[in-house]
Design a protein around this nucleic acid. Structure first.
Length: 662
RNA sequence: GCUGCUGUAGCUCAGUGGUAGAGCGCGUCAUUGGUAAUGACGAGGUCGGGAGUUCAAUCCUCCCCAGCAGCACCA
């Protein structure tokens, strides 16, 4: 007999090999029906898996949503794989986990056909439903590793065989049977049968290529994605959320609101339209006020530098594949087009600003009294990114960073990092973001001794602790192996209005580049010392940050950022004169305002400016003209507020004031 | 860069082996209307680029470019 302790503290003596399902049945028929899995000593397990020793047992029901979703999604993935193999014999299966909103399975289509496409999905979905309706029991079986490898090899499942062969020798591996005719190697757990899944709670969403084991050098498989839930209501809710997110897509809003465009002749580089560039200019002005107040000096450095400079900084060796390289020569003017002689020196567009900032530091002789020296630049960089990586404003080939480098002494690092934490905190809050901070620790491939890394990691950790931000409330987390090769880094992850996260800000300490580029200062002792260089950014890049803001605000920018802050719209042409007066006064008060005196009905104008997300619409007809008032209709509200022109100017001026100036 | 899909008017999209169509937008005219689309008329496209098959290609084939989704990449 073994002793099983339940969450309420009660214990039961049961025969060895009793299953959680047996215990649920013994407790009551309601629980027997509701229980879908079990936690045995904290580990999630099949409800039909026998308990072999004394244990703490908690039965899992669909009310334990996180566990239930995880189980269901994992099962959906198995059902997907079974369906694909049933429909397309010869397909090899590989790996199929659950995801944040569903599941996927990577399969290798049989050689007789190409990769799977979207067109295959409806039939696969139908087959999955058939498997669910058949309510096939999911049975766990333990097999010897070697027997399993042989079995996979015989079945022509080379990927599965390869994988099993990498698991420790002599280990027993579990497989799961779906009925008696299909199995997959899997650690589990699973629901008791396919019928526990809701056939209306999943949808296959897309097909994409994915490399075997995530390695570019391996064969590419077909990854079939699905979204999976416990019931149809959850699925519908999820699909609705996806639609809502799609409406916020910055590429769509960028076009609708006439903010920017991209075109193939300059792919990966943004054409900013007047409306979009107004947002940029406001952000730039905001950031200048921020860095001026925080003791930074702004600089501007060359776009193109000689390759020798990049060799010295190390970029030529490590980063050249992503650099735009240009010959320093006058092109021929023959009809055939430019020919590169091969004799010219190479130059390159800067992919980063750091070396140029070190070169500024190196001009003249710096004293310890000059430190910390904080050099800021709205630095326009070019990086030749893999074409498949480009994405709207989020990943571009030309971008402008809010980039600064702080040159300081060892003993100033913690203080500087702490000050940066405070600055970043203020900025992110003023844009309405919450955030978490993560510390990316030393990677496998790195420069420097372990002692140096201990020191560098401690400095960053220390600063965040002292800033009081290293708490779970701020999502503090340490990420082993994620640091840069020369230094650990702190990362700021923003959470936007609909709960998505974006990594933007960063600060990292660097002792490598000052060494390579021979930056030094004269210390109190009269000797030369190496400064430490802190690389830091808050927006990350203007392009990406604006993209994030568009999605965060769903295009409804706060007034201070809105490209057009107000429109004065007339009801009849008799009010045109008054409308122009109002517009002129608002302009004089610094409001970005336009007059709409077109020959259109007020309904039309209201609709158009609402769709364009103009924050305030000032409607004027003869009534307002005679009384010197305006009727303000604000975005997001149906009503109107009648007020005098002076009151309106006060209100708009206040709202149009950037948060840091209020 | 890899796999798949897509590329037709400014935008969203139909469509056909015999040199193209809608809605919105744009222009003109009428209308002066009180809070989410007034009506009529009109202009506008060498159907992403190149090559091939064909009497004939926007449509079929091949190559290239770009976009989308995912993968890989993002010191």
């Amino acid at each position: 007999m073994i002793r099983v302790t339940l969450p309420d503290g009660s214990a039961r003596e049961v025969a060895r090999g009793t299953t959680p399902a047996d215990i649920a049945a013994a407790i009551g028929p309601g629980l027997a029906k509701a229980a879908i899995a079990a936690r045995v000593d904290g580990e999630l397990r099949d409800i039909m898996r026998p308990i072999e020793a004394d244990a703490e047992l908690a039965l899992v029901t669909t009310r334990d949503e996180a566990d239930a979703l995880e189980l269901a999604r994992h099962d959906f993935a198995h059902v997907l794989a079974e369906a694909v193999q049933t429909l397309f014999p010869g397909t090899q299966i590989t790996f199929g986990p659950s995801t944040d909103d569903g599941f996927y399975y990577d399969v290798m289509a049989p050689a007789t056909r190409g990769p799977f496409t979207m067109d295959d999905l409806p039939a696969i979905e139908e087959q999955m439903r058939a498997i669910i309706r058949a309510d096939k029991p999911l049975r766990r079986e333990v097999m010897a590793r070697d027997a399993l490898i042989t079995k996979w090899q015989n079945a022509g499942e080379s990927f599965k065989a390869e994988w099993a062969a990498e698991l420790p020798e002599g280990e027993e591996l579990s497989v799961y049977w779906s009925g008696d005719d299909w199995m997959d190697m899997c650690r589990g757990p699973h629901l008791a049968s396919t019928g526990k899944l809701d056939p209306a709670a999943f949808k296959l969403t897309r097909v994409a290529g994915a490399y075997w084991r995530g390695d570019q050098n391996n064969p590419q498989l077909s990854r079939i994605y699905g979204t999976g839930w416990l019931n149809k209501k959850q699925l519908d809710g999820h699909l609705l959320r996806l639609e809502e997110a799609a409406k916020r897509d910055h590429r769509r809003l960028g076009q609708d609101m006439d903010l920017f465009h991209l075109q193939q002749e300059a792919h990966g580089s943004v054409f900013w339209h007047p409306n979009g560039y107004l947002i940029w200019r406001e952000l730039e002005a905001y950031m200048r006020r921020a860095i001026d107040g925080a003791g930074y000096k702004e600089v501007k450095t060359p776009q193109v530098m000689d390759a020798r400079q990049w060799e010295q900084s190390g970029h030529w060796g490590k980063y050249r594949a992503n650099m735009f390289v240009i010959p320093d020569e006058v092109p021929n003017v023959d009809d055939e087009g430019p020919v590169i002689s091969g004799d010219a020196d190479w130059m390159a567009l800067k992919p980063m600003n750091c070396p140029a900032h070190v070169l500024i530091f190196r001009q003249g002789i710096k004293s310890y009294r000059d430190l910390p020296l904080r050099i800021y630049e709205n630095g326009c960089c070019h990086r030749n990114e893999p074409h498949g990586a480009l994405h709207g404003l989020m990943r571009v080939r030309q971008f402008t960073q809010d980039d600064a480098h702080i040159f300081c002494r060892e003993d100033q690092i913690v203080e500087e990092v702490q000050a940066f934490c405070a600055l970043a905190d203020r900025v992110y809050k003023e844009f309405g973001f919450t955030y978490s901070i993560k510390l990316a620790l030393r990677p496998e491939q790195r420069f420097g001794s372990d002692a140096d890394w201990d020191k560098a990691e401690n400095e960053l950790r220390d600063a965040v602790v002292r800033a009081g931000l290293a708490t779970t409330e701020f999502g503090w987390e340490e990420l082993p192996g994620e640091g840069a090769f020369y230094a650990p880094k702190l990362e700021w992850h923003l959470t936007d209005a609909i709960g998505r996260t974006w990594q933007v800000g960063t600060i990292q300490s660097d002792r490598v580049l000052p060494e390579r580029l021979d930056a030094s200062y004269v210390g109190e002792d009269g000797a030369r010392h190496r400064p430490v260089m802190l690389h830091r950014a808050i927006f990350g890049s203007y392009e990406r940050f604006i993209g994030i803001l568009i999605e965060h605000y769903a295009g409804r920018f706060p007034v201070w950022l809105a490209p057009v802050q107000a429109v004065v719209a007339t009801i009849t042409s008799e009010a045109d004169g008054y409308a122009h007066d109002v517009t002129a006064k608002l302009k004089a008060a610094g409001i970005r305002v336009e007059a709409d005196t077109r020959n259109e009905k007020i309904n039309y104008k209201v609709r158009e400016h609402s769709v364009a997300k103009v924050p305030h619409l000032l409607v004027v007809g003869m009534r307002e003209a005679e009384e010197g008032k305006v009727a303000i209709r604000s975005l997001g509200s149906d009503g109107q507020r009648i007020m005098t022109l002076d009151e309106a100017i006060d209100m708009l001026s206040h709202e149009a004031t950037p948060p840091d100036l209020r």
